[in-house]
Design a protein around this nucleic acid. Sequence first.
DNA 1: AGGGACACTGACACTGAAGACAGTACTTCC
DNA 2: GGAAGTACTGTCTTCAGTGTCAGTGTCCCT
Lengths: 98, 98
Amino acid sequence: MDTALSVIGGRWKATILWRLSERPMRTSELRRSIPAITERMLIRHLQELVRDGVLTRIDAGTVPPHVTYELSEYGQTLAPVVGALCEWGRGHQRRGGA
Amino acid sequence: MDTALSVIGGRWKATILWRLSERPMRTSELRRSIPAITERMLIRHLQELVRDGVLTRIDAGTVPPHVTYELSEYGQTLAPVVGALCEWGRGHQRRGGA
DNA sequence: AGGGACACTGACACTGAAGACAGTACTTCC
DNA sequence: GGAAGTACTGTCTTCAGTGTCAGTGTCCCT
Protein backbone atom coordinates (compact mmCIF):
# COMPACT_ATOMS: atom_id res chain seq x y z
CA MET A 1 0.00 0.00 0.00
CA ASP A 2 0.93 3.60 0.08
CA THR A 3 0.69 3.75 3.86
CA ALA A 4 4.42 4.23 4.02
CA LEU A 5 4.15 7.22 1.73
CA SER A 6 1.71 8.84 4.13
CA VAL A 7 4.56 8.79 6.66
CA ILE A 8 7.55 9.78 4.54
CA GLY A 9 5.61 11.51 1.79
CA GLY A 10 6.08 15.11 2.82
CA ARG A 11 8.18 17.44 0.75
CA TRP A 12 11.08 17.20 3.22
CA LYS A 13 10.41 14.16 5.37
CA ALA A 14 12.69 11.78 3.54
CA THR A 15 15.50 14.32 3.79
CA ILE A 16 14.88 14.85 7.50
CA LEU A 17 14.87 11.12 8.18
CA TRP A 18 17.99 10.76 6.11
CA ARG A 19 19.82 13.36 8.17
CA LEU A 20 18.63 11.91 11.46
CA SER A 21 19.54 8.38 10.46
CA GLU A 22 23.17 9.48 10.67
CA ARG A 23 22.90 11.11 14.08
CA PRO A 24 20.45 12.94 16.35
CA MET A 25 20.26 16.66 15.73
CA ARG A 26 18.85 19.79 17.26
CA THR A 27 16.12 21.71 15.52
CA SER A 28 18.38 24.55 14.48
CA GLU A 29 21.05 22.14 13.25
CA LEU A 30 18.54 20.46 10.99
CA ARG A 31 17.28 23.77 9.71
CA ARG A 32 20.79 24.83 8.74
CA SER A 33 21.60 21.45 7.22
CA ILE A 34 18.61 21.76 4.89
CA PRO A 35 18.96 25.32 3.60
CA ALA A 36 15.85 25.32 1.43
CA ILE A 37 13.43 24.35 4.16
CA THR A 38 11.51 26.95 6.12
CA GLU A 39 11.39 26.75 9.90
CA ARG A 40 7.60 26.35 9.73
CA MET A 41 7.80 23.28 7.53
CA LEU A 42 10.66 21.75 9.46
CA ILE A 43 8.75 21.91 12.72
CA ARG A 44 5.50 20.70 11.21
CA HIS A 45 7.20 17.73 9.63
CA LEU A 46 9.09 16.95 12.81
CA GLN A 47 5.86 16.97 14.79
CA GLU A 48 4.15 14.71 12.31
CA LEU A 49 7.06 12.29 12.37
CA VAL A 50 6.96 12.27 16.16
CA ARG A 51 3.20 11.61 16.04
CA ASP A 52 3.85 8.74 13.66
CA GLY A 53 6.27 7.31 16.18
CA VAL A 54 9.38 7.31 14.03
CA LEU A 55 11.10 10.20 15.79
CA THR A 56 11.68 10.97 19.45
CA ARG A 57 11.67 14.53 20.73
CA ILE A 58 14.11 15.19 23.54
CA ASP A 59 13.51 18.47 25.30
CA ALA A 60 16.27 19.46 27.69
CA GLY A 61 13.72 21.60 29.47
CA THR A 62 16.14 24.47 29.73
CA VAL A 63 15.60 28.05 28.81
CA PRO A 64 16.49 29.00 26.16
CA PRO A 65 15.03 25.84 24.62
CA HIS A 66 17.28 22.98 23.63
CA VAL A 67 15.44 20.28 21.70
CA THR A 68 16.99 17.26 20.04
CA TYR A 69 15.34 14.86 17.60
CA GLU A 70 16.42 11.30 16.98
CA LEU A 71 15.06 8.19 15.29
CA SER A 72 12.98 6.17 17.72
CA GLU A 73 13.61 2.46 18.02
CA TYR A 74 10.69 2.00 15.66
CA GLY A 75 12.09 4.65 13.37
CA GLN A 76 15.23 2.58 12.98
CA THR A 77 13.14 0.11 10.97
CA LEU A 78 12.41 2.87 8.51
CA ALA A 79 16.04 3.86 8.09
CA PRO A 80 16.99 1.11 5.62
CA VAL A 81 13.90 1.85 3.53
CA VAL A 82 14.74 5.54 3.37
CA GLY A 83 18.32 4.55 2.63
CA ALA A 84 17.24 2.40 -0.30
CA LEU A 85 15.05 5.21 -1.56
CA CYS A 86 17.87 7.73 -1.41
CA GLU A 87 20.33 5.42 -3.06
CA TRP A 88 17.94 4.66 -5.90
CA GLY A 89 17.30 8.37 -6.27
CA ARG A 90 21.00 9.03 -6.54
CA GLY A 91 21.32 6.43 -9.25
CA HIS A 92 18.34 7.94 -11.01
CA GLN A 93 19.96 11.37 -11.04
CA ARG A 94 23.24 10.00 -12.39
CA ARG A 95 21.24 8.31 -15.10
CA GLY A 96 20.06 11.72 -16.20
CA GLY A 97 16.62 11.07 -14.84
CA ALA A 98 15.58 14.28 -13.16
CA MET B 1 17.73 13.02 -1.68
CA ASP B 2 14.07 12.99 -2.43
CA THR B 3 14.66 12.39 -6.13
CA ALA B 4 13.13 8.98 -5.75
CA LEU B 5 9.99 10.52 -4.31
CA SER B 6 9.62 12.67 -7.40
CA VAL B 7 9.27 9.41 -9.32
CA ILE B 8 7.08 7.34 -7.02
CA GLY B 9 5.55 10.25 -5.13
CA GLY B 10 2.20 10.45 -6.85
CA ARG B 11 -1.00 9.55 -5.11
CA TRP B 12 -1.18 6.20 -6.91
CA LYS B 13 2.26 5.57 -8.35
CA ALA B 14 3.48 3.23 -5.64
CA THR B 15 0.33 1.17 -6.00
CA ILE B 16 0.67 1.05 -9.79
CA LEU B 17 4.30 -0.03 -9.57
CA TRP B 18 3.36 -2.60 -6.98
CA ARG B 19 0.74 -4.12 -9.25
CA LEU B 20 3.03 -4.10 -12.26
CA SER B 21 5.91 -5.63 -10.32
CA GLU B 22 3.86 -8.81 -10.20
CA ARG B 23 3.04 -8.93 -13.88
CA PRO B 24 2.44 -6.68 -16.89
CA MET B 25 -1.10 -5.43 -17.22
CA ARG B 26 -3.38 -3.66 -19.65
CA THR B 27 -4.68 -0.21 -18.91
CA SER B 28 -8.19 -1.40 -18.19
CA GLU B 29 -6.93 -4.23 -16.01
CA LEU B 30 -5.02 -1.79 -13.87
CA ARG B 31 -8.01 0.50 -13.62
CA ARG B 32 -10.18 -2.31 -12.36
CA SER B 33 -7.53 -3.57 -9.96
CA ILE B 34 -7.35 -0.15 -8.29
CA PRO B 35 -11.03 0.70 -7.86
CA ALA B 36 -10.53 4.14 -6.30
CA ILE B 37 -8.40 5.54 -9.11
CA THR B 38 -9.94 7.51 -11.93
CA GLU B 39 -9.04 6.74 -15.50
CA ARG B 40 -7.61 10.21 -15.92
CA MET B 41 -5.17 9.80 -13.05
CA LEU B 42 -4.21 6.29 -14.04
CA ILE B 43 -3.22 7.37 -17.51
CA ARG B 44 -1.42 10.49 -16.33
CA HIS B 45 0.61 8.51 -13.83
CA LEU B 46 1.36 5.81 -16.37
CA GLN B 47 2.63 8.41 -18.81
CA GLU B 48 4.82 10.01 -16.18
CA LEU B 49 6.25 6.65 -15.17
CA VAL B 50 6.98 5.90 -18.82
CA ARG B 51 8.67 9.30 -19.17
CA ASP B 52 10.76 8.50 -16.11
CA GLY B 53 11.83 5.29 -17.78
CA VAL B 54 10.54 2.86 -15.19
CA LEU B 55 7.65 1.57 -17.29
CA THR B 56 7.42 0.40 -20.88
CA ARG B 57 4.32 1.00 -22.93
CA ILE B 58 3.51 -1.76 -25.36
CA ASP B 59 0.93 -0.76 -27.92
CA ALA B 60 -0.35 -3.64 -30.00
CA GLY B 61 -1.29 -1.09 -32.64
CA THR B 62 -4.62 -2.73 -33.18
CA VAL B 63 -8.00 -1.13 -33.27
CA PRO B 64 -9.64 -1.12 -30.80
CA PRO B 65 -6.55 -0.21 -28.82
CA HIS B 66 -4.72 -2.82 -26.80
CA VAL B 67 -2.01 -1.32 -24.60
CA THR B 68 0.06 -3.15 -22.02
CA TYR B 69 2.37 -1.66 -19.42
CA GLU B 70 5.27 -3.43 -17.79
CA LEU B 71 8.27 -2.55 -15.66
CA SER B 72 11.22 -1.64 -17.85
CA GLU B 73 14.55 -3.24 -17.16
CA TYR B 74 15.44 -0.09 -15.30
CA GLY B 75 12.12 -0.22 -13.48
CA GLN B 76 13.08 -3.60 -12.09
CA THR B 77 15.65 -1.82 -9.94
CA LEU B 78 12.82 0.13 -8.37
CA ALA B 79 10.75 -2.93 -7.57
CA PRO B 80 12.63 -3.97 -4.42
CA VAL B 81 12.48 -0.41 -3.11
CA VAL B 82 8.73 -0.24 -3.65
CA GLY B 83 8.49 -3.68 -2.11
CA ALA B 84 10.34 -2.55 1.02
CA LEU B 85 8.10 0.50 1.20
CA CYS B 86 4.93 -1.57 0.97
CA GLU B 87 6.12 -4.07 3.51
CA TRP B 88 7.05 -1.37 5.99
CA GLY B 89 3.70 0.27 5.40
CA ARG B 90 1.93 -2.98 6.14
CA GLY B 91 3.83 -3.31 9.40
CA HIS B 92 2.99 0.27 10.21
CA GLN B 93 -0.71 -0.38 9.74
CA ARG B 94 -0.60 -3.50 11.92
CA ARG B 95 1.12 -1.42 14.57
CA GLY B 96 -1.95 0.80 14.62
CA GLY B 97 -0.09 3.55 12.85
CA ALA B 98 -2.54 4.94 10.35
C1' DA C 1 -28.62 0.57 -35.63
C1' DG C 2 -27.69 1.12 -30.75
C1' DG C 3 -24.81 0.28 -26.77
C1' DG C 4 -20.64 -0.67 -24.81
C1' DA C 5 -15.57 -1.40 -24.48
C1' DC C 6 -11.00 0.44 -25.39
C1' DA C 7 -7.15 4.02 -24.64
C1' DC C 8 -6.81 8.46 -24.57
C1' DT C 9 -7.19 14.03 -24.59
C1' DG C 10 -8.62 18.68 -23.01
C1' DA C 11 -10.62 22.18 -20.05
C1' DC C 12 -12.01 23.17 -15.72
C1' DA C 13 -12.87 23.17 -10.35
C1' DC C 14 -11.25 21.77 -5.95
C1' DT C 15 -8.20 20.89 -2.20
C1' DG C 16 -4.60 20.36 0.83
C1' DA C 17 0.27 20.91 1.24
C1' DA C 18 3.69 24.38 1.24
C1' DG C 19 5.47 28.79 2.04
C1' DA C 20 5.50 33.83 3.68
C1' DC C 21 5.13 36.59 7.57
C1' DA C 22 4.46 38.08 12.07
C1' DG C 23 4.51 37.13 16.94
C1' DT C 24 5.84 34.62 21.83
C1' DA C 25 8.92 34.13 26.07
C1' DC C 26 13.30 33.99 27.82
C1' DT C 27 18.46 34.28 27.72
C1' DT C 28 23.06 35.57 26.57
C1' DC C 29 26.48 38.56 24.66
C1' DC C 30 28.45 42.94 23.24
C1' DG D 1 19.81 48.25 26.57
C1' DG D 2 19.58 46.44 21.97
C1' DA D 3 20.41 42.58 19.09
C1' DA D 4 20.42 37.89 18.20
C1' DG D 5 19.41 33.02 19.13
C1' DT D 6 16.28 29.15 20.51
C1' DA D 7 11.93 26.46 19.61
C1' DC D 8 7.84 27.21 18.73
C1' DT D 9 2.38 28.94 17.16
C1' DG D 10 -1.17 31.18 14.22
C1' DT D 11 -2.94 33.07 10.10
C1' DC D 12 -3.12 33.89 5.36
C1' DT D 13 -2.00 33.09 0.44
C1' DT D 14 -0.42 30.40 -3.30
C1' DC D 15 -0.01 26.58 -6.20
C1' DA D 16 0.63 21.93 -7.91
C1' DG D 17 -1.65 17.63 -7.72
C1' DT D 18 -6.29 15.50 -7.95
C1' DG D 19 -10.43 14.77 -9.60
C1' DT D 20 -14.76 15.76 -12.63
C1' DC D 21 -16.89 15.97 -16.88
C1' DA D 22 -17.23 15.81 -21.60
C1' DG D 23 -15.51 14.22 -26.01
C1' DT D 24 -12.59 11.20 -29.85
C1' DG D 25 -12.50 7.18 -33.21
C1' DT D 26 -12.91 2.48 -34.13
C1' DC D 27 -14.52 -1.96 -33.18
C1' DC D 28 -17.68 -5.93 -31.58
C1' DC D 29 -22.03 -7.77 -30.08
C1' DT D 30 -27.01 -8.06 -30.15
